[in-house]
Design a protein around this nucleic acid. Structure first.
Length: 309
RNA sequence: GGCCGUCUACCCAGUGGC
């Protein structure tokens, strides 16, 4: 329950439930503590998270690898890589073995900080400790190479990945397609897509969403529409994300007719428009000065139970 | 022997920097 609440943005209720446990004479175990601490860190309450961590120690509840991983991730996400590394040291000194998540988290932080080489160094360290890179490791490093503009090194890493028995998944695909959109042409995007298919990627809803969005972002709605037709032919069912991506493409091209046509269709198909859908459509209407219509749409979203942000 | 908590990308907008 605590985990379910905090994962759905109801941290406040999670806190109450967590407190209630004590009143009922129950002591949270390390799983509940860890989930709660993760929630605190993700809402930015770092001092509180550390206080709860100390409470765990006081009550004699074991801090395990996952607890450490949660703290390391919380620190990394706020740019405190150094402190995170201190925790890794602490784990090693305590004889608590770091796992894939520990290393992957630190690698990701180094990548995001622009230190891909440090990330690869950590990968070596992990391997020396007996942990072979997993799919998340490869995806993280691939993302690091993309962000630092080292696209030329990706082929080799993909091959290593294959040799290790991992086919690219839809996350690998998303990372690489986004890497291509930044500098590459539409051809590059397709070539990358083909390359991944050759390496064992199975096309699914997510890969279509990524591609459709990639082309829509570039205003290439005709190509995007071809992909849409292709996915339907394969029996895949478009999601809110598919609709939003295409609606956005048409809006950016000032083709509001097509946008609203899709909006109507998604509703008929039983796909509920979300906040993003309305932000896209409102932006489209405002861009061409249709303020009256924008106002009506704003009412419509409220009627549908959505809160404008 | 098993289960619950942690890591990688992603649809609109929003903040900051250049």
């Amino acid at each position: 329950l605590v985990n379910g609440l905090r994962k759905n943005g109801r941290m406040h209720e999670a806190k109450e439930l967590f407190q209630n446990m004590f009143e009922k004479g129950l002591s949270p175990d390390s799983v509940i503590y860890t989930s709660f601490i993760d929630g605190l860190l993700k809402e930015g309450s770092m001092p509180m998270a550390f206080k709860v961590g100390e409470e765990m120690i006081d009550k004699g509840v074991m801090l395990d690898v996952v607890t450490y991983n949660v703290f390391i991730n919380g620190l990394c996400k706020r740019g405190k890589i150094h402190q995170a590394e201190e925790l890794l040291k602490e784990m090693l000194e305590k004889g608590l073995a770091p796992d894939h998540t520990t290393y992957n988290t630190l690698m990701d932080a180094q990548c995001k900080a622009g230190n891909v080489n440090e990330a690869f160094e950590l990968c070596d360290q992990m391997t020396r400790s007996g942990l072979v890179p997993n799919l998340v490791t490869y995806n993280t490093l691939i993302g690091g190479l993309c962000e630092s503009g080292k696209m030329h090194k990706i082929g080799e890493l993909l091959n290593d990945m294959l040799k290790a028995g991992f086919a690219p998944d839809s996350i690998t695909h998303s990372i690489l397609i986004h890497g291509c959109i930044k500098k590459g042409t539409a051809e590059d995007v397709f070539r990358m897509h083909e390359q991944l298919l050759e390496k064992g990627l199975s096309p699914n809803l997510d890969t279509y969403n990524t591609l459709i969005d990639a082309f829509c972002t570039r205003g290439m709605t005709r190509k995007a529409k071809e992909l849409w037709d292709e996915m339907l032919k394969k029996g895949l069912v478009p999601s809110v994300i598919t609709y939003n991506a295409l609606i956005d493409g048409y809006c950016k091209n000032k083709n509001l007719g097509e946008s609203f046509c899709l909006y109507g269709e998604m509703i008929r198909q039983g796909i509920a428009p979300n906040l993003a859908t309305y932000n896209i459509l409102l932006g489209g209407l405002c861009m061409v000065g249709l303020m009256q219509e924008a106002d009506e749409l704003l009412n419509e979203m409220v009627v549908r139970g959505l809160v404008p942000n």
